[in-house]
Design a protein around this nucleic acid. Structure first.
Lengths: 352, 352
DNA sequence: TTGTACGCGTTATCAC
DNA sequence: GTGATAACGCGTACAA
């Protein structure tokens, strides 16, 4: 008894038909006489043949039914971010229509060797964010001639992207706070680069930064508050927001009257830090976020924020991928955030 | 100019070498004269050849470098669950050593057509949970002869599994509450089946239930409190816990003195519901959870719970996959939870 | 060190 | 409705 798995040819042989006929029985694309069909199926189950080998099929067909998603950094990081998961959700929805699976690839800047996207049998690629390493992935993918969509990253020259009006939306939030009368405002930014270091953001840091989202939101806020100090967090986490919040709010002499955080999770952390220090939000300090996600544990607050269409972002990317797989050209999609005033911002406290 | 992508043969031809030589240049498995090497590489970049086609390579090599993870239900659901994300994290860590990518497949019970795992070019499969549909996936995977590991599901006959002592751990929690003096206890369960319906759990529901985790934790609690009423939630969410909590705690005449929830998120929801009703935790009502995750927004509470090794669960599964890909037999791994007493349980209030 | 020849398992095309 | 044939693009004994 042979130990290797049965192939279509084995089945065809056992059923006394040609391999092409057997193939057609499984693909169902051409009519087959009912009798032959059953003979083939019987032979298949006899031999334990469970259908065409996807590897061979994908070589023959030129497609594997798999779309890669390249995420920066550790997957844990990515999945802890509600915006990312919402986006993935929209993406899978859109791709489900092409019945494509989603291959998760991490984009570790500290990893040696070939980029994983080089060796993955995928039909298309979605790049999220755009670190230097992501740009490298983009080159590889383009070289392979695969359809690609970049979500929130500067891809350049004719590559379909899904963009968000980060700068404008961030400016909207800042303007709201400005109109409430705040002069003394501090910013909490997302990571500036793949190293994700915490600390005060200097012009040098900005020059060396690689994360466009962070830079755009920062630029938007500084349209309104050009001199606002900024402190960067290591990631979009409540804990990171608390660390930044403590750093900003502890010293009562230099305490800002408002803090603009680049994500809702960071904003919640800042609020926690404020509460910890006995400050009331928004009476003593106003806090605004970005994203418009539903944050667990926010209590009665309703965050002032820019609501971004996270699910639609993923869905839009998926739709472009599907289009390109159908041979049509991909298009860049611009999505807009919507400002939402909440209960965490108010006029600054009267100072003596 | 030909429009189709260049192949290894084209490169070899342009470089004036045989395809095997060219192949070896890219795989690097055999020594090649430096001069030839450079000629081949030059020809490759000339033609825009970016390396072997992964589809062809995977057919030839018999492996694709992809491991499938089959998740029940919607991905959004899965990634909202901190236990799942932690597990995925451990899984990716373990699989990174085999430099395998992770293919996300959803296991939609309401979806028609062939199970996605039938057509995916993967080397191994990880099944999470075990609905009826998952069992179907298991059959397919076994038929294809792929290595498979089942996480927290009843796989039966010689299939490597990663299991948790759900029943014992649940009983531990219940025992703790029992020893505090509680007699009147209610349970909040996870979903019983793929339909995820909310409501009072009847013996009929239990008989028709398909989610082993839910049943095991339920059974554990009822070892200690055989008559405890149970109410099922539609998922492991704070909101679901609130809904269940309101249902259990609103009627002061039949209010339990303790609520055992099958997940920490549910427990937090129950606590929220209690606070909403003006009840103090643990003075008026004790609440315990399951999982031992860090819940955002829990405030000063420290949840009484069973801490499960979520990351290790994923890591263990990944390690077994790696073993099996190396040709060794996979083994079942049993993991244990650790009881953790917190500040959300105390002796029941004295009743008049 | 390099080249020849074959097979991996399938499917599309065309005849019959 | 069915069958012969030719790719799909690559890796690897084996021979030179």
């Amino acid at each position: 008894m042979n130990d290797r798995r049965p192939t279509l040819a084995d089945v065809a042989h056992a059923a006394g038909v040609s391999t092409s006929t057997a193939s057609v029985v499984f693909s169902g694309k051409v009519n087959v006489a009912e009798a032959t069909r059953e003979r083939v199926l019987a032979a298949a189950s006899e031999l334990g043949y469970t259908g065409p080998d996807p590897r061979a099929a994908s070589l023959r067909l030129g497609r594997s039914g798999i779309v890669a998603v390249v995420l920066g950094g550790h997957l844990r990081h990515a999945f802890l971010d509600p915006v990312t998961t919402a986006m993935m959700d929209g993406l899978t929805d859109a791709l489900a229509e092409a019945s494509a699976g989603l291959l998760l690839l991490r984009d570790d800047p500290h990893e040696a060797g070939a980029h994983p996207v080089t060796e993955a049998p995928v039909d298309a690629v979605v790049l999220i964010g755009c670190s230097a390493r992501t740009r490298e992935a983009l080159e590889i993918v383009r070289g392979r001639g695969l359809p690609v969509v970049v979500i929130e990253g500067d891809a350049g020259e004719g590559i379909p992207q899904v963009t968000l009006d980060n700068r404008e939306a961030s400016a909207d939030v800042a303007r709201h706070v400005f109109q409430l009368g705040h002069k003394h405002v501090a910013l909490v930014t997302l990571a500036l680069d793949a190293d994700r270091r915490r600390g005060i953001v200097t012009p040098e840091h900005i020059a060396a930064a690689t994360v466009d989202v962070t830079l755009d939101r920062l630029a938007g806020a500084r349209e309104v508050f050009p001199d606002a100090p900024a402190i960067s967090a290591a990631g979009s986490l409540i804990d990171e927001g608390m660390i930044a919040g403590r750093a900003l709010l502890t010293d009562s002499a230099h305490r800002p009257t408002a803090v603009l955080a680049q994500s809702d999770l960071l904003a919640v952390g800042v609020i926690r830090a404020a509460e910890e220090l006995g400050l009331r939000v928004p009476e003593d300090v106003s806090v605004a976020g970005f994203d418009g996600i539903a944050v667990d544990g926010l209590g009665d607050y309703r965050l002032t924020t820019a609501v971004q269409p996270a699910v639609r972002k993923g869905r839009a990317a998926g739709e472009q991928i599907v289009r390109m797989l159908d041979g049509e050209p991909g298009e860049t999609v611009h999505l807009a955030c919507r400002f939402r005033a909440g209960s965490t911002t108010a006029a600054p406290p009267a100072r003596p």
